[in-house]
Design a binder for these strands. Sequence first.
DNA 1: ATGTATTATTGAAACGTATCAATATTAAGG
DNA 2: CCTTAATATTGATACGTTTCAATAATACAT
Lengths: 374, 374
Amino acid sequence: MAHVTIQDVARKAHVSLGTVSNAINHPNKLRPGTLARVRDAMSELGFLPNQSARMLAGGRNASFGLVLPRLDHGFSLQIANGAHSEARRHGYGLLIANADEDLVLEQDYLRYFMGTQMSGILVQPLAGKDWAPRAGALPIPVVYLDTHSKQPGYFVAVDNVAQGRLIAEHAISLQARRITVVGRAEDPNLERRIEGIREIALKYPDVVFRHLDEGAWNLARDGYMIGSRLAGEPAGERPDFVLALTDVLATGVIAGIQDAGLSVPGDIAVAGCDGNPLAWSGGVPLTTCAPAGYEIGRRGVQFLIEQIERAKAEKTLTEQGDVEAAASMSQEADENPCHRSLVRPFLLARQSTVQANVRSNPAAQPGLDLGTYL
Amino acid sequence: MAHVTIQDVARKAHVSLGTVSNAINHPNKLRPGTLARVRDAMSELGFLPNQSARMLAGGRNASFGLVLPRLDHGFSLQIANGAHSEARRHGYGLLIANADEDLVLEQDYLRYFMGTQMSGILVQPLAGKDWAPRAGALPIPVVYLDTHSKQPGYFVAVDNVAQGRLIAEHAISLQARRITVVGRAEDPNLERRIEGIREIALKYPDVVFRHLDEGAWNLARDGYMIGSRLAGEPAGERPDFVLALTDVLATGVIAGIQDAGLSVPGDIAVAGCDGNPLAWSGGVPLTTCAPAGYEIGRRGVQFLIEQIERAKAEKTLTEQGDVEAAASMSQEADENPCHRSLVRPFLLARQSTVQANVRSNPAAQPGLDLGTYL
DNA sequence: ATGTATTATTGAAACGTATCAATATTAAGG
DNA sequence: CCTTAATATTGATACGTTTCAATAATACAT
């Protein structure tokens, strides 16, 4: 009942404390016979090493922490999957915490991860205009995901401006003449998408652009209402192309238009903008771009490992007495405090001609299976 | 650079170690002035309590661990969300680990959580015929989710048999005469669904039932191929109703049938069976049942808390010298080692008449917003 | 055999906190 | 102002590991 400790194992195997510890951490330091004896004792007693004690004594935990703002958005899941596979590839574990749209909870989890001696932390911060880097002087590597900031630190984000440009150019390449952008610009990422779209709009003065600054980014229902309304506009005035700022919105817009009796994309074409695989999994062939969450997670972990490696190198130099070399390394780091990685979006043109919107179910496309996202 | 410890804070605030500890854990034991002094010192030094040390010294961590087999299935996410909200309600945190379909990794995370002094662990074990309870004699509460087993322990699962019955009866109530069940029976849960369907089949001998034991549960593409094939069968022989064992499969089947030129549900109706919200989010109004993942997560946490409370009560009794009372409690527990909770599925009849399958976009239904699942 | 080089094993000293009995401080009552 | 009760604060101890210098046990060459 009482916890089985390394002591108990040592006693049972007739060896010392240190030997049991070695059996766990440096098995090759032991003679095969001893190792076997210790292992037998461990399994007989059902020994489970106390991770708290290990970390306290040993320093670092071979895991990363990932704090997500929510669990039920495809983008965050892609991040989690990308981060997880990259972490595993390097022998690290990944623990995920859900801040559940709550700033306080986000802070709590961040502090928890820091206190737990994690090897590093990834955060996809809660969106909001007032974003500031969480955490002060950091005892451990941190990488911010899906966020832009002028602050020093490590950041990995989608190039939202490029995303906007991409999708707007796509619309124009399909001969759209009246384009309506749908969605409230409620956070910097969305603003950047609009910025990209606007750039393109300026290049094509004969195309009519309009922005409906309404509809929450994550509510398909808002899209539905907007879609119904747009469908109700007179034929010559209503848009022939709707650019929704998010795929979830786009899904709703499509449904709204269709329920109003118009065809998509026959009467009005619709495109999304953030490559959310879950939004089109049901069979709506939505053109969109940048399903880049996976890549963001991957790069985030790479950044963490980069920081870890650098710290390790610095420490090694210092130990070798090469103090000036170490100093120059850390000075270099100080001069170059910002590390940004923009993940380039790409067009997922599942609606390569306007007509194609009608039927090209993703389930039918080999090599692209929805199951992965369900 | 070097970690700021409780010592440094104590020195800075001119108090003792114990006082700083109290400031963290029992703030009401301190005089307001002292508390303020300590808190100032903490924030000035940027103190972060070392969680490893806390747990080592103090015993338990106020968090639960959740080990999931995968992150990209809606059901697991529902579980995570249900567990998270219930845990928060009781003041606990939740850390999620993704076993990523890997038995070894699942074990690793379980061991990790046990070693981390988590207050309890939830596991949705990897599916497979050879399932056996992970973990031996457990030092901490564990609850198994979405699994059936004869072993002693705590289990929360969907009543898969009822699920099968429900969906089959639904089909028959819609006048189906030739029902084809689609999906490989690759794990006990799926077998149970078939069992439920079979029960109903026996009750209606004039209805033709057929089971195609093919199609992986999580591959829409498999469903697509099966759907195309079924659509190719002669009009009098092909099914008028397809029951897919999972919603993901059903999604594919629908696409396959439609691409073959038949209408759903006009020519062939299709229903899923596991209430995966992500599978119908795109606008395919799929009838299905039991979106019960959330409820499973919730009950799982409740079971954990129940175990914690019981242990606490037992300990209190023992301390009060009431040894015989404590003994009787634990004896009672020994005699009643199995705790099962079956979550009852319910029909999500989004296709309440066959015709309704055509158009009833969920985005249009108030009170049911997809955004939540995207 | 004997001494030396190599490899295994040992056990004491951290790691940073919570706990709790002991002590010091404050408040209350006369 | 003194006594007693209540409340704050202290600091030694324990938690279960890892680490590392010291020691013991081998293997190897002579």
